[in-house]
Computed example of a mutant assay.
Amino acid sequence: MDHRRFIALTGILAAAVAIGGPAAASTGPAVGQSSISSATAGAAYSSSHRGGDWGRHDEKFDYYLALGDSLAAGVQPNAQGQSLPTNQGYAMDLAAALRDDNRHLSFVDLGCPGETTTSMLNGGCPFPHSYSDQTDAAASFLAQHKHARVLVTIDIGANNVDGCATASGIDTSCVVAGLQTAATDLPKILGKLKAAAGRHVEFVAMNYYDPFLAAWLSGPAGQAEATASVQLSGQLNGVLSAAYQAFGVKVADVSARFKTTQFTPLVQLTPSLKVPLNVARICQWTWMCAPAPVGPNIHANKAGYEEIADAFEAIVDPR
């Protein structure tokens, strides 16, 4: 997800001060460098690890391959408000949890900030990467590790519609076009990945939380916008879930984890302010309610990424 498309919201959230965490995220390795920087490293892994793929009978996974957009890359804002990859994303948290039972696990992160379903399929992600497109890079890695036990996680689709929310409201025609594109692209992405995967590959995807719920804090007009945004979030998650279900891919319910549809009960956000539960979760687990220049920023903070990782862990048996 690209926070630059949400600049229109920058004036609405000064009342909720830095609830989500420190003033700036600590940056870590560049995207894709947790274990490899691109699919070209797959050849190196195949030569050094192929013989060991079957040698870990007490472990479930040899590799964890993270795919998707900025959430897969662990993006957070720094003190100047720049969105940068960090070592505190959900994929990093999940890899650490998996290593409790899979101590030889190799972690490969190909997530690309700003990725849409179209750029994931055809190339053109705005963040620099050494591969031409993420889908082919992932398929190449899977093909080179046909006999390995691989967990693949996927988050993609939010950037198809994120630009549809503007200062004047939600552009319905933009939403329809974005959802149609996701519905067309995602089966092609999943088809390529499934065709390249060996018998011991487990795919798990996620749906999305709704960062626009933070508009609730700006008053009646913002509350109407927040309510409409939940409908948009539900439409997007419905399209994603239908595609994943068609390909037998389990879905981590991040939307439910963030209580996205729950406007009740009211909970204490600050000593003087009560807000709906779903709004509180966005303020607590993302940077949307942080003061400028760090916020508002749609990305999860450290606590939020941990919650996303927990949603994945709930349906991934590490043993």
Rank of each mutant, 00 (worst) to 15 (best):
G238I: 04
G234P: 03
F258E: 07
A224W: 00
T264P: 02
S272G: 10
E225M: 15
A215Q: 14
T260M: 08
D253Y: 07
L277C: 01
Q235C: 00
G222E: 13
P211R: 11
P220E: 08
L277N: 03
F247E: 15
S218C: 01
Q262C: 01
A243Q: 12
T261V: 08
V275E: 05
S272F: 01
K259Y: 11
F247S: 12
F258N: 07
A228C: 02
P265S: 05
A243D: 08
V267D: 11
A252Q: 09
T260N: 09
A242R: 15
T264G: 12
F263M: 14
G238H: 07
V254S: 05
L213A: 11
L236Y: 05
K259A: 07
F247K: 10
A228Q: 12
L269A: 15
D210Y: 03
R257P: 00
S241F: 00
V230C: 04
F263N: 09
P211K: 11
N237Y: 06
S272N: 12
S233T: 14
V251I: 13
V275I: 04
A221E: 12
E225G: 05
F263S: 14
V254H: 04
V267G: 09
V267C: 10
A246R: 12
T260K: 05
S218K: 03
K274T: 13
T270I: 06
L213H: 07
A243W: 02
A256S: 11
S233P: 02
L232T: 05
G222N: 10
K259Q: 09
T270N: 03
V249W: 13
V254R: 05
L277K: 09
V230G: 04
L269R: 02
K259V: 03
K274D: 15
A224M: 05
A256K: 14
G219V: 06
Q245T: 15
P265Y: 02
G234C: 00
S241M: 02
L266D: 15
G219Y: 09
T264D: 15
L266I: 02
T264E: 15
L269V: 14
P211V: 15
D253C: 06
A221R: 11
A246N: 06
S233I: 07
A224E: 04
T261M: 01
V251G: 06
S255I: 07
L217Q: 10
V249E: 01
L217N: 07
A242S: 14
Q223W: 07
A256P: 00
S229Q: 13
A242F: 02
L232S: 04
Q245V: 12
F263C: 08
L277Y: 06
G222V: 08
P271H: 07
F247L: 04
T260Q: 08
L232M: 15
G238D: 05
S272M: 03
G219T: 10
L236K: 03
Q231G: 12
A226Y: 09
P211G: 11
V254N: 05
Y244R: 10
F212Q: 13
W216V: 03
T264Q: 15
Q235T: 03
Q262G: 01
A228M: 02
V251L: 05
F212S: 10
G219Q: 11
R257D: 06
L217P: 01
E225V: 09
W216I: 05
V249Q: 02
V251T: 15
K259R: 11
T264V: 13
A228Y: 00
A215P: 00
P220G: 09
G222Y: 09
A214H: 01
F247T: 10
K259T: 03
S241D: 04
V254D: 06
G248N: 09
